[in-house]
Design a protein around this nucleic acid. Structure first.
Lengths: 208, 208, 208, 208
DNA sequence: AATGAATGAGAGTTCATTCAT
DNA sequence: GATGAATGAACTCTCATTCAT
């Protein structure tokens, strides 16, 4: 998708600077339009207007609308996945409880750091194209979870695949639900505490 | 939507029967189109064609496309919620483990009973209108969870609101993820077992 | 146009009574819908609903929507023309001033007797079909004017055709304008007086 | 040269020129379709086809069908009103007869200069939106008539409001009737002569 | 590179009319 | 005769995308 951008990146410094700035403006505008107007009313013209460029310019950087949305979604999910991967990497060899605390903390922090973006992308994620990206990212973080869990200091797991799948997907629901709820039914720190407890309890229960 | 039907109800029995049949055909066709073409390519014409009726007929029963999708979504979620409510009602006074087993079992069964519908409605649920319906249904089942958990024979909970929120939303993620995954990473019965374990472990950990 | 109605009329008394009642209800409903919703939003369904009959019944009396509107328009214009014809007939042999007074008075009275209908039909009159009816009715009253003017006691006219055309069409504008004006710029009786003066002055000026 | 600043100014000229041409083509096509097909069969597609542009282009310049028709109507009426206003302005201080001759002449000339347009817009004028435009334009020319009549050299009027209302609306009927009549019942110059006589006679009769 | 006017397929929706009951 | 569900052609309007400038 970001074919053009990458191709240009390696060559011209000033051009790249301008391009990068333009691309960023477009991506930011996309999220804003998503929040203000919703996915259904998101049009390429509206995005380009908000970004302060012409439609033609938008199409110079993104081959079509779909790729624009895919890029926005991917960038967001990548940030979340990287946060999770980071937590996994630095928790290797620790106790299962420490692992649960680190991973849940990283995930919740990443999601709530850019609440607006997270909310805006909720609908994009369930489009055909979006679901695939979500699945890919999901798999990626499950691998990180697997790697981490195998090094747990206090316990040993026989079915790492299923366990990491369950953990990786179970924390998403509550967070998304809290994000999209108009009036928050519970506090963020309460959610983090509960999810940590849940994952911890689950891990020790599944230990051999 | 059943506005016309109700108004007519007192007068024409056979007419109503045909109407109901027509409405059902349209709802079924909607799910099929959702599965085959996706939300983006779902058009009222496509739905009516597949239902074997004219577009005009579709609009005789649904004021607009949005209401059609909302109806389909609501019907499905209502079935799921009712399954959960049923499990909650018949598990009152039992142990926390029995409760977890019953609720997770009911939820997974309901979702996998109509896999096609569940998958098809994934994208509808994240539309503006859809999110509200999901939220409403979610709240409804959390109330049932609350009522049930308060009667647990072996444990007592201090923060029922948060606990039922977490349980109600945490099981959704893994199930949805499994449904939308092209190739199943794990088995359904394994998922049910793990989710049951997770909820059970979580409940006993949160007990006072 | 009123084919069906006439055909039925000659045969069955009770049927005719019911028919006439139904037809009248439909015609009345048409005017009401015209006033409430306007020509653009007038649908046969809306008219039949308001008339308290089914669409099918409407189509039993009027072959199509156009004929319904034509009938309503024709009935109204016929009443106006008959009023003018009556005034013309009973003013034969009188002075030009008496003629002007009688004709203008009859026309204004007829138009303002059913203000609602007059207003409602304004738009119908300019449809293709409507324009023809208006033209026909216009011609009919011009003939009456001609016949009357030829018998004027105090003056004699050489170009009766043109004079009756001008009189017949000149009084329409001010009346219609007053009807459609939201806030009346002048009073009805002032309008009648002015129009009478205008026609009188015109007639004596055109006298040989 | 300072590209950015000039860019807007320099670009807009040719672009605007083309736009103006496109808009004109659409307006002309609207009148043609109105004449050929009538208001009922005037569709935005039909208009754009005749204008040699795509529907999308039409909607780039007119937000909806209604505004297209309103623009066409307003342009025509404005021309007529300006003709009347011109005649009024240059007849100030003259005799009432000179005033009548000038105003009737200007009105008839303006209407018959663009016979096609005049005829085409007859039906548009009676639409909801159209009636308001007609009323506004009507008022505007009545003001001009008032101003002029107040300066009459040979007579003085006590009820200028009513008189200008009657004159302004009375001349419309005969002209419109002549325009829409398939076969002309009278000649244009005869109409002008008679209307002038009528208005002149009326004015002197209403003089104090 | 940037622009934005032009495109036109296609979407949602309406409504005059029919016809089985 | 009366009914009103069903029909589907036709309409208005949108918007992703292109391309001459």
């Amino acid at each position: 998708m970001p074919r053009v951008r990458m191709a240009v990146a390696a060559r011209k410094k000033p051009v790249q600077a301008r391009s990068e700035q333009t691309v960023l403006a477009i991506l930011t505008a996309t999220i804003q339009v998503l929040l203000i107007a919703g996915l259904e009313r998101l049009t390429t013209t509206r995005v380009s207007e908000r970004a302060g460029v012409s439609v033609g310019t938008l199409y110079q950087y993104f081959p079509n609308k779909e790729s624009l949305l895919a890029t926005v979604l991917e960038r967001h999910l990548l940030a979340v996945v990287e946060a999770v991967e980071g937590a996994c990497a630095s928790s290797k060899g620790k106790s299962a409880e420490a692992m649960a605390t680190a991973v849940v903390g990283a995930f919740v922090a990443a999601k709530f750091e850019s609440v607006a973006t997270s909310m805006a992308l909720y609908s994009v994620a369930s489009e055909v194209q979006g679901a695939a990206i979500v699945a890919r990212m999901s798999r990626q973080s499950q691998i990180a979870l697997c790697d981490m869990l195998a090094t747990a200091a206090d316990v040993r797991f026989s079915d790492l695949g299923t366990i990491s799948f369950v953990i990786g997907t179970a924390v998403v629901g509550p967070v998304q639900s809290l994000l999209s709820a108009g009036t928050a039914p519970i506090e963020v720190h309460a959610l983090r505490a509960h999810l940590t407890s849940m994952v911890t309890a689950y891990l020790y229960k599944m230990a051999d």
